[in-house]
Nucleic acid binder design. Structure first.
Length: 631
DNA sequence: CCACCCGTAAACAAGG
DNA sequence: TCCTTGTTTACGGGTG
């Protein structure tokens, strides 16, 4: 068997236990979560489920009181104090439903009737009572939430977003995960007038839809929020902490106030200054039915959005899970090291892909950009399935992938042991083109592979052989005797020659091929330019950590494009100018410091940053594959 | 069915 | 002698 250059350790023995250990760790995480979801409370931590439970119970207490009060009015039969909580809760919910419906009816009547004074005293009384109820409820909620908050602060509570065990009721939605909070923030800021977190009106209604919302019932908002006192009304129940804080920090940046205009839905009253705005707010948008209804609507909007987000997230997760499963035969290959990254990843991973599959924290490359945690997360789950590696599922399959996807995938492949859907030839070519001198030694090519693809940190013997095989086999790879020895270069023309045979169609992409011909070496730049045009945003996030990603992305894109036959050239893409990505090139990567042949390296910068720690792992990995293959 | 591409495995040789 | 590098052949699967 061949050995790679570099300190490779065939220490299977150590690798296995390590892998097992990490796997266990992950599993533990999983079970832990499950445990929490089931209401178990491990080690002094209280999960969201428990929290929900507590909230429910507390809410029930409130409910009892309210029900008692209500009974006095409506003559309901008083429930026994020992009644089962679910029943009670149900009652409460129904009660509120009715209340809300009633309220809505009234509101509608009022609205439809315009200014017609047509409310019998009775209605007014009822409305007042409802308001009183709601206020009481809110107060109680505030109390309980304050309590919860204090618990949280004491570390007794940990609220985790998206607990599976939670009932999918509005209640559960109160556990606003960070994303939702963000969404909330966006919603409240973008939608003019949404219900103000720091503003009381909204809170009224929240009770109906979200009885116990708010993951971070902010006591602070109550205390510090100037508006609360100004209005002299109830403080927000549904105020994400972050939100309230941000507003409090900037008292004059009220979500309902912007550009001198009141942003209450449908208002747009002009307020010269903040003070007048506050006045206006209190006068025009005081706690009345209308405001309440508007808040309700807003709540529903937000809820919708939250639901939508949740659904989309679920979908994403399913997609990732699906892909992962497909590409990964559950081969419990214990994976080694890199526990560091695995820890960080495992956390997110457990959220993103609650699979029981052995999470092999194999990401030696470690997440450079936690930003794109998404992909890298699942990915981490490795695919040791070396068995049936299907090649070229790329060509056609990937066609629709956008450059943004590519950029993401790139990060994905970097951290995930998923076989990249690109041919060896393409990858080799890209590796070479990425190099400053457009030439690499065999060993440098190897290094590029391992650096850019987690997958190639294993099965070294296999893929290295394939690389050599490809280098020799394809005419497009030209071996050049160098001072140092032999280096490999790419004959673009030759490379492109063989491609048209592959797939037909999609003329829209041909440009790339053509440009390749035209610019040969600069091809990269051209591609990257187009890439940059299309996907800089994502791209940057992905490439922040490692600029090389851009090149890889372009490679992938090339591959994809090449897979499609093009017929038309000269396009904007071919602009030979250097894309931003390319501009970074010099800084890029050169093979890791370990590389003996390495010398042309202006680079090695990134690598050190991202990989130097892992790279040793990379090395280690490289051989494990061999061993694992035998497993 | 065929031709082609691709990946994998392996034998072999040359050189350090 | 061992390892790396490079070449070559063979085989099987996928695809058009």
């Amino acid at each position: 068997m061949m050995q790679e250059s570099g300190p490779e350790t065939k220490s299977n023995g150590s690798a296995i236990p390590n892998g097992a250990g990490s796997g266990n760790h992950l599993l533990e995480c999983g079970s832990l979560r499950e445990g929490r979801a089931n209401g178990e409370t491990p080690s002094g931590e209280i999960g969201a489920a428990d929290l929900a439970h507590i909230q429910q119970q507390q809410a029930l207490q409130v409910a009892r009181q309210l029900l008692l009060q209500q009974q006095q009015v409506s003559g309901l039969k008083s429930p026994k104090r020992n009644d089962k909580q679910p029943a009670l809760q149900q009652q409460l919910q129904e009660f509120y439903k009715k209340q809300q419906e009633q309220l809505q009816l009234q509101l509608l009547q009022q609205q439809h009737a315009g200014k017609q004074p047509k409310e019998p005293q009775q209605q007014q009384v009822a409305a007042t009572q409802q308001l009183a109820f709601q206020q009481q409820l809110l107060q109680m909620q505030q109390l309980q939430q304050q309590h919860l908050l204090s618990l949280q602060r004491q570390g007794l509570l940990t609220i985790q977003p998206g607990q599976p065990g939670l009932p999918l009721q509005p209640i559960a939605q109160g556990m606003i995960p960070a994303e939702l909070q963000q969404l909330w923030k966006e919603v409240t800021s973008s939608h003019p007038a949404e219900e103000t977190p720091s503003n009381n009106h909204s809170s009224l209604d929240l009770s109906s839809t979200c009885v116990t919302t708010s993951s971070a019932p902010s006591k602070t908002s109550l205390i510090m929020n100037p508006h609360a006192s100004t209005n002299g009304q109830l403080a927000p129940v549904h105020t994400p902490k972050r939100e309230s804080l941000s507003h409090e920090d900037h008292p004059h940046s009220h979500p309902l106030y912007g550009h001198g205009v009141c942003k209450w839905p449908g208002c747009e009253a002009v307020c010269e200054d903040f003070q007048s705005f506050l006045k206006h707010l209190n006068n025009e948008h005081a706690l009345d039915d209308r405001s309440t209804a508007q808040c309700r609507v807003q709540m529903q909007v937000v809820q919708q959005l939250e639901l939508q987000l949740a659904k989309d997230k679920e979908r994403l997760q399913a997609m990732m899970t699906h892909l992962h499963v497909k590409s990964t035969e559950p081969k419990a290959t214990p994976q080694p090291l890199n526990l560091v990254s695995s820890v960080t990843l495992s956390k997110t991973a457990s959220e993103a892909s609650p699979q029981s599959l052995p999470h092999t924290p194999t990401t030696p490359t470690t997440p450079i950009t936690p930003v794109t945690q998404g992909p890298s997360v699942i990915t981490t789950t490795s695919m040791h399935n070396v068995g049936p590696i299907r090649r070229r599922y790329s060509d056609k399959y990937n066609v629709p992938i956008s450059s943004a996807d590519i950029a993401q995938n790139q990060e994905f492949y970097k951290n995930a042991e998923v076989r990249p859907p690109f041919t060896y030839a393409s990858l080799i070519r890209q590796a070479i083109l990425e190099s400053p001198e457009k030439q690499l030694t065999l060993n440098e090519i190897y290094n590029w592979f391992t650096r850019m693809f987690a997958y190639f940190r294993r099965n070294a013997a296999t893929w290295k052989n394939a690389v050599r095989h490809n280098l020799s086999l394809h005419k497009c790879f030209v071996r050049v005797e160098n001072v140092k020895g032999a280096v490999w270069t790419v004959d673009e023309v030759e490379f492109q020659k063989r491609r048209p045979q592959k797939i037909s169609g999609n003329p829209s992409l041909i440009k790339n091929i053509q440009s390749s011909h035209a610019y040969c070496t600069p091809l990269n730049a051209a591609l990257q330019a187009s890439m940059a045009e299309n996907s800089i945003p994502l791209y940057t996030t992905a490439s922040m950590g490692n600029p090389t990603l851009g090149n890889l992305a372009s490679a992938m894109r090339e591959e994809l494009n090449g897979a499609m036959e093009h017929t038309n050239s000269n396009e904007s893409d071919s602009s030979p100018g250097r894309s931003p990505m390319q501009a970074m090139h010099p800084v890029h990567v050169k093979e890791e410091p370990l590389d003996p042949d390495e010398n042309e390296g202006p680079l090695s910068l990134v690598t050190t940053a991202n990989h130097s720690p892992d790279f040793d792992h990379d090395r280690d990995y490289e051989d494990e594959p061999v061993n694992e293959d035998m497993e």
